[in-house]
Design a protein around this nucleic acid. Structure first.
Lengths: 154, 154
DNA sequence: AGTGAAACAGTGTTTGG
DNA sequence: CCAAACACTGTTTCACT
């Protein structure tokens, strides 16, 4: 085992479930729900943060309300002698690229990207991604509808 | 335009940037940083929530600390006459499935899933996914390393 | 309409047991 | 782990520009 495991009991799980749904759930509300004091919840939260199991919190923005409605996955083929890190560095400069993975299988790099519409997606592919040095060609999967979006269950 | 656009000025952007990085950033800290009062920040936050641009907040858990270290994308081919919704319903019951998309291209359904290790991934594919009625076959991309993980820039 | 200072209500945090 | 005291934040109010 290369990562340290931490012992989580049922109460920890309930705390995590509440806060992964809504980071602003009041401690006292959780306390009432699980039947222990607020101070105890606070202690456990410190433990969970120290163990690096909790790594932060985020506000979630609705991309559609910002005008981004097209989500796509793009597989990228690279030329043989390409320095992958340079490609990733270039991808980081494209804000629409939300995820980037080195993957097994046919592609060298696999990304998830968010664009305003199909025209914008095409522009991103042609002007920004396929012009990166070393990129041979790309293969796109456009998400027509996302049915599941969640974190791992705890 | 099928989704309402909302006008966001530079101050709104700074607020959003702070809170999408850390949902617990104090309002007064943001206020100091952008040079207006806390009450003003609060008003703007209400506006942003009402406009559905802010849709909540989440604590982020480090899956690796929970023992989940293998991330994979899986393309799913379905039989012709399959009811896609039933397949999605079955996928929802598998907690390791984090995302599920209807996609264009070769696959009918494309999912992202998180497993403890390669053995666990194989078990999920063989025992849980490929046994769903209507699933013909699957094609997996395993993420060896994730280099980018972020929300859209605001 | 939007801002800012002050009062208020509610939370997170610490302490002592 | 609990209960109470504490410190700080989020929230509202209101006078002002």
């Amino acid at each position: 085992m290369d990562t340290k495991q931490i012992t989580i009991d049922g109460i920890d799980k309930k705390i995590l479930r509440a806060l992964t749904e809504d980071a602003r759930t009041p401690i006292l509300e959780i306390a009432r729900h699980v039947g222990i004091s607020g101070a105890a919840i606070h202690q456990r939260l410190r433990k969970l943060e120290k163990s690096k199991l909790l790594v932060g919190s985020k506000f979630i923005i609705n991309e559609k309300a910002l005008g981004y409605s097209t989500l796509a996955f793009v597989g990228i083929y690279l030329e043989q002698a390409t320095n992958n890190d340079d490609v990733v560095k270039a991808l980081k400069r494209i804000p629409e690229v939300l995820e980037c993975h080195y993957t097994t299988g046919q592609f060298n790099i696999f990304i998830k990207l968010l664009s305003r519409n199909n025209a914008h997606l095409m522009q991103l592919l042609n002007n920004d991604i396929q012009t990166i040095r070393g990129v041979l060609r790309t293969e796109s999967l456009i998400s027509l509808d996302q049915q599941i979006d969640r974190q791992i269950k705890i």
